[in-house]
């Protein structure tokens, strides 16, 4: 029965696709190098470049929208935009709510960063952005988890001594560790199944288009060039 409903929905969608081939891409705009607002206030970063190229390959017109991380999935479901492309790792929990394309990054290493090297990660107070794979990972260890709504605030919390360490994607921490007094602590942890674009489960037609575009970028190596350019680890 459910598949019947889904297929009618898919049919109806295909029929109406001619009308609306503008795809609105929702992102957070606060997570360099994946996505951030540049000095001109525009969305920039790895995912901006990737998204633009994917839309070109799928022959769709795309528009960029920023949204708070906390409400990024609810606003997708209620139709404020059509896709999430915001450094969102593919996890089983999220798969129950949204549908992902194939990953466009390898499962990305997450890392801890702290002001001093002698932090006991098993019992420390650790900051992570709310509703991320890192926050659920920290919650599963013996450490005390403190959640913040934006990545920026997790860094500020370590610097002010409010928490002992921060856990985040290593790609996000790399430039910060390079330029400030923070240093990596402990080993990298591999979480999730890579980063993918997320869509409403009913939008099967658009997902297929983007999935094909990602596959073609993996094939001809442009995705690797892009990952290199933005210094994101792992290649296809």
């Amino acid at each position: 029965m459910k598949s019947l409903i889904l297929s009618t929905a898919a049919l109806a969608l295909t029929a109406s696709m001619g009308l609306a081939d503008t795809v609105r891409l929702g992102t957070e705009g606060a997570y360099p190098p994946y996505n951030f607002l540049n000095d001109n206030g525009e969305v920039d970063g790895f995912e901006r470049e990737l998204g633009d190229e994917l839309c070109k390959r799928a022959e769709l017109t795309c528009e960029w929208v920023t949204n708070d991380w906390d409400s990024i999935i609810p606003n997708l479901l209620s139709g404020n935009y059509d896709a999430i492309i915001a450094g969102m790792s593919i996890t089983p929990e999220r798969k129950e709510v949204v549908q992902f394309t194939q990953g466009y990054t390898r499962p990305s290493p997450s890392a801890y960063a702290a002001l001093s090297a002698d932090v006991d990660l098993g019992s420390a107070v650790i900051a992570a952005q709310a509703s991320t794979i890192q926050s659920s990972h920290v919650a599963g260890t013996g450490a005390t988890l403190v959640e913040f709504p934006t990545p920026d605030e997790t860094i500020a919390a370590v610097n002010s001594g409010e928490v002992d360490a921060v856990m985040a994607d290593k790609d996000f921490l790399l430039p910060i560790v390079g330029e400030t007094e923070l240093q990596f602590v402990g080993d990298d942890v591999f979480l999730g199944e890579g980063i993918g674009m997320a869509f409403r489960q009913s939008d099967t037609d658009v997902i297929a288009k983007f999935d094909a575009a990602i596959a073609s970028m993996k094939e001809d190596g442009t995705l690797n060039t892009m990952l290199d350019k933005w210094e994101i680890e792992g290649k296809f």
Binding site: P33, P175, G178
Partner: peptide, 14 residues
């Protein structure tokens, strides 16, 4: 929010 030199022309702390 603190900005690193890689992503902006105007890096600054928090």
């Amino acid at each position: 929010g603190s900005k690193t030199a890689k992503f902006t022309d105007y890096p600054h702390p928090d």
